[in-house]
């Protein structure tokens, strides 16, 4: 059995895998934040709560309607995304003429309401959500065991992240979206319904959060607080990456997950704060963020 810097390889690869999984969630969530920020210019503070909603809706579909994981993966983003559309139409759309900070405050309030409601209904102890039968078990990779479900989480989030990247950077719809980010008035003059595009973009971003929630449900227990602390880490990820680029959000998300995993191996005490320390360093060296453009 060989050892790497005094660390047994099982521990090293195990933590790397955990890091990669956390990174998948950072990437999906910061991607959603970046997409929403790009067009709406607001930071969606309720993103963590909507991720939590994703996990809960999947649990409810399973428990009350017997709808399995695979259908949940498809349905939950649509359901939660639709709730996002309603929120955008009723509330957020009234704030576009104001300072962007009001959007942050509004979505913070929404996060409190959503989390409070779920805590009232389900308590704070986690609810179990079974791994789908097709993905139980593990693969022996020689140097470590890879649980199938965890492998699936990484693959699924990579596919969804790059799908989103492709849709935004390489398709006609994405071109309209990027144009509207630069100059909404002009794009509106070309006959494109910009307000509707904004609404659907918010719905899509929220849907991404919900998708991440469904992916997370079998790994972490489904509980009302699961998004609350996570979203703050994701904010740090977003500050590090800079929200100017979709690809930047994805790469930073995965990268920081891995860095966090490695920290757990070599300096466990620092693993909770390593991302914040990196944020401080990035602010010192490149304040606009690794992939950001200076405004």
């Amino acid at each position: 059995m060989f050892e790497l810097l005094g660390i047994p390889p099982q521990a090293l690869f195990g933590q790397l895998l955990l890091g990669l999984i956390n990174g998948s969630f950072y990437a999906l969530l910061s991607l959603g934040l970046a997409v929403i920020f790009g067009l709406l210019n607001i930071i969606n503070f309720s993103h963590g709560a909507q991720y939590m909603m994703g996990a809960f809706v999947a649990w409810m579909l399973m428990t009350y309607a017997g709808i399995n994981y695979w259908w949940a993966l498809l349905l939950v983003p649509i359901i939660v995304g639709a709730s996002g559309v309603v929120i955008e139409r009723l509330m957020i759309s009234r704030l576009y003429h104001l300072d962007h900070l009001y959007g942050l405050l509004l979505t913070f309030g929404l996060a409190l309401i959503i989390q409070g409601l779920f805590r009232n209904r389900f308590g704070v102890s986690g609810l179990p959500y079974a791994i789908p039968a097709e993905l139980t078990g593990a693969q022996n990779l020689g140097f470590m065991f890879l649980p199938n479900y965890r492998g699936w989480v990484v693959v699924a989030s990579v596919v969804v992240c790059f799908g989103t990247w492709f849709a935004i950077e390489r398709t006609r719809l994405g071109a309209c979206l990027r144009a509207a980010t630069e100059n909404p008035t002009l794009v509106g003059a070309f006959g494109i319904n910009v307000p509707r595009m904004i609404t659907l973009t918010y719905g899509f971003g929220v849907g991404l959060a919900a998708f991440a929630g469904v992916l997370a449900a079998p790994i972490y227990s489904v509980n009302p607080n699961m998004g609350a602390d996570l979203i703050i880490v994701v904010f740090a990820v977003v500050v590090i990456g800079g929200m100017g680029s979709i690809l930047g959000a994805i790469v930073t998300g995965f990268g920081l997950g891995i860095v966090e995993g490695l920290t757990k191996v070599f300096y466990p005490e620092g693993s909770a704060v390593v991302i914040f320390v990196i944020m401080a360093l990035v602010l010192l060296v490149k304040p606009a963020g690794l992939f950001g453009r200076t405004a």
Partner: peptide, 28 residues
């Protein structure tokens, strides 16, 4: 000194993240 290097919404996120770091410090 670190937070004022970013503006607006980023400023809010940076302060929030640092506060969370202080929280983890207080926890440990």
């Amino acid at each position: 000194a670190l937070a004022i290097r970013r503006q607006g919404i980023y400023f809010a996120m940076v302060t929030l993240a640092f506060a969370q770091m202080v929280f983890f410090f207080a926890l440990q």
